[in-house]
């Protein structure tokens, strides 16, 4: 049974979003990391890249699979968690601590389309 952090929003493609003012902090859920197995690489966008909701913004790689990271919101990338470059296993160890990027949101109303913790729990049940 995977863990679900209560105070976050979730996408159907298993990214989580923590809202901090106009900034969305994005990572992947415990369920996602469990499905992937040992994560070997995190492909991240560059700083200042514009990402749009529903499009890929990077990918997670494990030995035998890869999974696209799908942007839950649109906006500009203002920070990347560069520690993951060398230590991708942090996502396995602490999926809700190991954020991937921070995005300055272009349209906060996009958050409305995301799932809350209990709806996401239903999804991955």
């Amino acid at each position: 049974m995977s863990k679900i952090a209560e105070d976050l929003l979730y996408s159907e493609s298993h990214e989580w979003v923590k809202v901090d003012g106009n900034v969305a902090i994005i990572g992947v859920s415990d369920f996602a990391q469990g499905e992937m197995g040992d994560i070997t690489y995190v492909e991240m966008p560059d700083l200042d890249d514009e990402i749009s909701a529903g499009d890929d913004f990077g990918a997670l790689e494990s030995v035998k699979t890869s999974s696209e990271l799908v942007a839950p919101v649109s906006g500009k990338v203002i920070a990347r968690n560069d520690v993951l470059e060398d230590e991708p296993e942090r996502i396995n160890e602490d999926p809700y601590g190991a954020w991937i990027i921070k995005v300055e949101m272009a349209d906060k109303s996009e958050l409305d389309a995301l799932l809350n913790a209990s709806a996401y729990a239903e999804l991955v049940k």
Partner: peptide, 10 residues
């Protein structure tokens, strides 16, 4: 025997 493929990729 079976190799450590995770370290190979990380």
């Amino acid at each position: 025997g079976r190799p450590d493929e995770t370290t190979a990729a990380r």
